[in-house]
Design a binder for these strands. Structure first.
Lengths: 207, 207, 207, 207
DNA sequence: TTGTAATCGAGACGGTACGTCGGGTCTTAGT
DNA sequence: ACTAAGACCCGACGTACCGTCTCGATTACAA
């Protein structure tokens, strides 16, 4: 994937790697806000112009750097055990996001994309596969009857990732596996097919 | 509430208001990143020093400004209808966060607090009442038996707000009330007391 | 004399001196073209903005620096001996211009002023006193009858300085005092009153 | 004439002309300082390397371009009337230098040559013929007895051109023919043979 | 009523970084 | 071999803000 305009085969691959490495390393060390294009260029021993030539913004550089550093998102496992599969993915995300210096950088990127449509789009393209994979896994379970058919799988994705995101953002302590388990269990309980027949339970909500 | 050090009764209230107004207005117009102390000072017709004297950072100014502009969070309603109460709160939050220019500013603040402990603390103090109110409302429902006693109310808060946060952050379109309803229903289904005794349903997770 | 816009009593005199010194020293060492505002700022341990605040261009800084370094032009001597007075002034100018690193800098400034009206004006204000002094000296001699009354003193100034300028610009070797003497003698011969009446010599021009 | 190193018969004459044209046109339009090799290359639709290959500096390109545009200096006329011949040459020079956009470009070149020995030499080779021609014309007049034999013709050249140079450099208004006449007359008066016999006039200088 | 001391608007200061231009070198195709 | 094209590293441009620092000029308290 490329965020870059001139799109030339003359591009110097060495410079590209050096820039991405310098970018992500700097961001981890001093944070997103204090990361400057100038600083990246100096660290990568590269002219500033070389950065401006290929990326439209600091965010775009870091997004690509992040991508490269994190590597392939990998297809979501499908062991047949939905709970275990989701647990694995959520713990992975929680760890990456909450217990790794990458988390803060990534989140800053997310924020920047709120006021930068191009960046938002690039970010979307990056996370889309992972999100889609999770959604497909849920839809598969739905077809097997483990999730009620009227549930929107996309909403489930939002709930699963959103819970983790919120916890990571607003809590200082790292996220305990137990917390992941609990929210996962609640959600799966909330979506499992109703016992049916015996005058099926209504939503418990009204008091 | 005040984030400010000298804390003197000699403080010029007029300047304070002008600064907060200029800050939030600027942030809404041009975004958090492009909001500068210098710009705020000029717009508020105030010396830069006056800002630096009373606030430690741009984020601190904006946090206080946001607080002032949004006013009292208000105690969460308790109409006896848990679903309706939660729905009201979540829709309010979703609207504020996702359909208002304030959302992006607030989120930038949240990001900044990831690498600014003082700001994080100030932010926490600001949102704590709302979060606690929601948690207490859930605990009340729990004592009435509408939520299983083994559920951690704090986790529910994370799930409720987290889902909205994620949807707002990663989707461009505004959040539809139906989406709030669906996730709320799933969660409440997931936490309602088990039918018990009669061969009670196990968690649906294992396939 | 000041070339500067904001014109404030808050100006930091220390910075001003440091800038002028750094400017002229740099220009002497590396030449006008390779002298950069950035370099001056660094050498003077001053922010670039401080230079841009008070001077409109590199040329303006150097002009003022040159002025300060060369100090007062001093009123032209009037010993009663016209030849000796002019000789002294011309040798001084020739030396300054041709045997001193200042010459090249000054000349670059002159060139820059060809395409920078503001600089041209500032330069004019700087050299005007010296030129006027020389012109007045010539006019005094004219009233004493040592120079024909129909001669334009300003033209004489042009001839005196122009000759030196040309020699300095187009010859590498330093200007010998003898050369100054010779041109001076020619000019004074060319303007001395005609013997009149008694078979007066006509202009030798036509062949 | 060529200032260029590889000096190959493979040289593309079309590129050479395009470069020289682009160079002089750009310099006339925006001035010497703002003329860039990059700009010349783009305007001439030529690779930068092609310029760097054949010329050592911007000045060298412009010098050659100037030469080509101005064409042959032409031998100085010798009509037998010294005053008229000189007047013609000086007016030509004054016009070219002072009333033409070429003047400023040429002068910038002159300045650059003050700190670029190679350029100085190239410039010297270019103007030498014209200067020599003027000097020879003066020497011829000298042998005919119209100029005192002890006068150094080279000094006269300096005075003639120098006066014009100074006037052009330091005055904004274009040079009037009358000014040229006056200085020319003064010089010729100053160098014409002395009336002799009657206890020959001393230089009028001492008062 | 009058100090006197903190706060105020203003803005100069030494800096860092911005995004752009151009320098001079080097590489890639194409002629 | 020489060309057009243009990427590369680098240095400087002129601007925007940073956070600190004087400046008088209010201003509100305590003497």
């Amino acid at each position: 994937m490329s965020t870059s305009p001139p799109d030339s085969y003359r591009r110097n691959e060495h410079a590209r790697r050096a820039i991405l490495d310098a970018a992500i390393d700097t961001a981890i060390e001093v944070g997103y806000e204090k990361t400057s294009i100038e600083g990246i260029a100096k660290r990568a021993r590269v002219g500033k112009q070389t950065i401006y030539r290929w990326w439209p913004s600091k965010g775009a550089v870091l997004l690509e750097a992040l991508q490269q550093r994190m590597g392939r998102d990998g297809e979501l496992a499908d062991t047949g055990d939905l709970f275990a599969d989701l647990r694995g993915e959520l713990l992975r995300a929680a760890h990456l996001y909450g217990a790794t210096p990458i988390g803060a950088v990534y989140h800053a990127l997310l924020t920047a994309s709120l006021s930068d449509a191009a960046l938002a789009e690039a970010h979307d393209a990056m996370v889309r596969p992972g999100i889609d994979a999770l959604r497909r896994r849920l839809e598969a379970a739905q077809e097997l009857g483990h999730i009620r058919p009227d549930i929107d799988a996309a909403t489930l994705v939002d709930m699963l990732y959103g819970t983790i995101l919120f916890q990571v953002l607003l809590r200082t302590r790292p996220l305990a596996p137990g917390q992941v388990d609990e929210s996962l269990r609640i959600i799966l309980d909330g979506v499992r097919p109703r016992p049916t027949l015996e005058g099926g339970a209504r939503p418990a909500a009204s008091e």
